[in-house]
């Protein structure tokens, strides 16, 4: 079922921009935030809410900018791979501390660390460009330099490919012993320890994975926008990722991407038809999902699929 949803989503996202070219950029940014929301969703499976994952989103984005500036690397795939590695390392360092905490303490500590990084990015002007941020040039694709428009056309399909690959890998992880143990953390940590399983080890591996996903999202956003700014680490961005994950649902990896697309469409329509009150529209939509779709938007498809399966 999750693979079918992923395939349908990927086909939709792949075909639409061919007809409407300006959608390319919107889709790239939407998928980028879907990656970060997927990272949040990984931790939500253990019942942990991170309100600080914009930290890794920014780490991924700035890793690309720094790598370009410091080493002159321009290859898209090298930049993305480096961003994932750097975000994973950041996740390992921060996560080693975070996995000791639960519930509100986990959420608030993530928020605190992300705000420290936001402040550092804003204040270290000489290094990060401060609030002006850093420019990200258009990368090369396997040695070929393309103009921004042509690059974005290809980049969209690269991003869709990554989205499908990440979705499949995360789904395999969810079904693996480690992934099932992650879900078991929420229901019975004591029993897990009494099975000889390190709960902190399970959580740390999930934290690193979630940081890598958020970092990949940040790198994609930075490359697509051509600019990285400290606001990428700001707490409202983290809140946005949580919102996307909850809207989409965490039962499968497609959920956060569905949430990201839904929110983007809703935001576009709401700002077009109710410019003054679009935040209210988004808030009402979230409340409706929380009250009537506890499994998120993904849950609608999953429920239909289960019903058909039962018949």
């Amino acid at each position: 079922m999750p693979i079918v949803v992923l395939a349908v989503l990927a086909a939709l996202v792949a075909l639409l921009p061919a007809a409407v070219p300006w959608l390319r950029f919107v889709f790239i940014i939407t998928i980028a935030s879907g990656f970060a929301a997927l990272g949040v969703a990984v931790l939500l499976r253990a019942g942990l809410i991170s309100i600080g994952h914009a930290l890794f989103y920014a780490v991924g984005a700035y890793a690309v900018a720094f790598l370009m500036r410091a080493t002159g690397t321009t290859d898209l795939f090298l930049l993305l791979a480096a961003a994932v590695v750097v975000s994973g390392l950041a996740g390992l360092v921060v996560g080693a501390f975070m996995v000791r905490y639960r519930a509100i303490f986990f959420a608030m500590l993530n928020l605190a660390v992300s705000m420290v990084v936001f402040s550092l990015l804003s204040k270290l002007y000489g290094l990060t460009g401060g609030s002006d941020g850093m420019r990200v040039a258009t990368p090369t694709l396997v040695g070929s330099a393309l103009d921004r428009e042509a690059f974005n056309a290809v980049f969209l399909y690269v991003v869709i490919g990554l989205f499908v690959a990440a979705g499949i890998l995360v789904q395999l992880y969810f079904r693996s012993p480690m992934g099932e143990a992650l879900a078991a953390v929420e229901t019975n940590e004591v029993r897990l320890e009494y099975l000889g399983v390190s709960v902190r080890g399970v959580l740390l591996s999930a934290y690193v994975l979630s940081a890598m996903l958020a970092g990949l999202g940040g790198a994609i956003a930075g490359i697509a926008i051509g600019h990285v700014v400290p606001e990428m680490a700001y707490w409202t961005e983290s809140g946005h990722f949580v919102l996307v994950a909850v809207l989409g649902g965490i039962a499968g990896p497609a959920g956060p991407f569905i949430g990201a697309i839904f929110l983007e469409v809703l935001r576009t329509l709401a700002s077009g038809f109710a410019a003054e009150t679009w935040n209210l529209v988004v808030g009402v939509a979230l409340l409706l999902v929380i009250f009537f779709l506890p499994e998120g938007l993904y849950g609608i498809g999953a429920k239909l699929f289960r019903r058909r399966g039962a018949q």
């Binding site: 395999l172 079904r175 693996s176 012993p177 480690m178 099932e180 143990a181 897990l192 591996s205």
Partner: peptide, 13 residues
């Protein structure tokens, strides 16, 4: 799985 080694991330439980 805990007895055999939980650190498997791609093979299904």
């Amino acid at each position: 799985a805990a007895r055999h080694g939980i650190r498997q991330v791609l093979a299904p439980l």
